[in-house]
Design a protein around this nucleic acid. Structure first.
Length: 224
DNA sequence: GCTTTGATGCGCT
DNA sequence: GCGCATCAAAGCT
């Protein structure tokens, strides 16, 4: 039943050429796309109750991206790449379409690497509208309210069962992880604001939101 | 080795 | 709206 996601209609998987463009452009265009992760009963250690999963019925978890932030390669002190390549941020310097997962405040954040190999830029996915695997995500989050399931980067990582072990996977080729175009919904109204929780380069308008989504980590406001 | 910081979220007021 | 638990990384010493 759930071995392949069915709603809303999934379009094409985003290819490397989508990610290999200016980071703010990628961040803006990711709004409305579909992020999906398939749990594996045997291989995914993040599943707390692996025995309960039918291997022939691996659930897809995910939904529609409603909030992103761009972290640039140059003149962006909030970006992890601003201090150069280190062992912990190496994924951010890999090819466009690489999945960069890093720990912060004892939690995790999910990014899609952008631009050319070695540059060091990425888009943080901050929130989605949960659509697939709702009951799995509710269990993982210990939270029934769909509005509080994936509303923020750390909540999203917990709901989708993504950990640092998933750092470095490829969003373009991994059969169980990717971002897909959304063929059905009308294009969202995208607004830009300042990024959340950053203390450096804080005035730059590099956060992108679907203005009318109920699933944002913070509502859009006209104040910058 | 030690200290500070941080792309957070929750609970309480 | 504010305080704070929590911990990995980085930068000192």
């Amino acid at each position: 039943m759930q071995s392949s996601p069915s709603e809303p209609p999934i379009g094409q998987r985003l290819q490397q050429s989508f990610y290999d463009r200016p980071t703010a452009t990628v961040a803006r265009e990711l709004i409305g796309m579909l992020l999906l992760h398939r749990l594996h009963a045997v291989t995914n250690a993040a599943v707390t109750n692996a025995a309960a999963i039918d291997p022939d019925n691996s659930p897809w978890l995910g939904g529609r991206i409603v909030e992103t932030e761009a972290y640039l390669a140059e003149r962006d002190l909030a970006s992890h790449s601003s201090r150069g390549l280190t062992p912990s941020n190496r994924s951010m310097f890999q090819a466009a379409g690489t999945f960069y997962v890093y720990p912060i405040h004892a939690k995790h954040c999910l990014n899609a690497v952008t631009e050319a190999n070695g540059v060091g830029a990425a888009v943080l996915i901050r929130a989605i509208e949960p659509l697939w695997g709702l009951s799995w995500m509710q269990t993982r989050r210990g939270q029934q309210d769909p509005l509080k399931l994936t509303r923020g980067p750390a909540m999203l990582a917990q709901a989708l069962a993504i950990t640092r072990d998933d750092d470095g996977r490829c969003l373009v080729t991994d059969p169980d992880l990717g971002i897909f175009s959304n063929q059905q919904t009308k294009p969202p109204t995208v607004k830009r604001t300042v990024r959340i929780g950053v203390s450096k380069s804080k005035s730059r308008l590099l956060r992108f939101v679907d203005q009318h989504s109920k699933y944002l980590s913070r509502p859009f406001s006209k104040r910058r």
